[in-house]
């Protein structure tokens, strides 16, 4: 099998390639650079700035090929942080429905995982995993950029 045939199949017959390369569908989708989309719910901003921090020179997530994208339609990973209030809930669902499947959902921070200190609030509409399926939890208030990186890299190697 020569290379050009492989490219041809990549584009037009994914299932043939999967069989040929002995990969699962999910493995195939997350094999290359991951694009991230960031959804900030009703948060206190700490997790948001720590996620942005991952992109800046000290942590530099781009060396793993990861990049923040503007639309969830281009994303492989959906990062959700903050507690979800009543106004956010339908929008989070809609964003999840717009996302190309399969997509990895990562709940970041104490609020994303459980609702944290805001779980008793009168506008709270349930933690992220009650609304959409979550693949990974990164606890902490806020989690350090190292923890966010470690979580996503762990997901990749799974």
């Amino acid at each position: 099998m020569d290379e050009s045939a492989g490219y041809y199949c990549d584009c037009f017959d994914i299932f043939w390639v999967l069989k040929f390369k002995k990969l699962g569908f999910k493995e195939f989708c997350f094999k290359k650079s991951l694009f991230l989309f960031h959804f900030g719910g009703a948060s206190c901003n700490n997790c948001d700035i720590e996620i942005l921090d991952c992109l800046t020179p000290r942590y530099d997530v781009e060396r793993f090929g990861m990049q923040l994208v503007g639309s969830v339609r281009h994303a492989d990973v959906l990062l959700v942080n903050g507690s979800i209030n009543k106004k956010d809930k339908p929008r989070l669902l809609e964003i999840y429905n717009q996302a190309p499947k399969p997509i990895i959902v990562v709940a970041i921070g104490a609020c994303g995982c459980t609702g944290g200190i805001f779980a008793e609030g009168n506008t709270f509409a349930g933690p992220v995993d009650k609304i959409i399926p979550v693949d990974a939890y990164i606890p902490g208030c806020p989690p350090k950029p190292e923890a966010i990186l470690a979580g996503i890299v762990k997901l990749l190697s799974k």
Partner: peptide
């Protein structure tokens, strides 16, 4: 989109706990 009802939540926290709550009004 960001409303969490902090003023109301604060009424259910003791003064020592409320410090951790008001800290999380804004992260920056």
């Amino acid at each position: 989109y960001n409303h969490r009802g902090i003023e109301k939540l604060s009424e259910s926290k003791t003064f020592d706990q409320a410090f951790f709550l008001v800290e999380r009004i804004c992260g920056i």
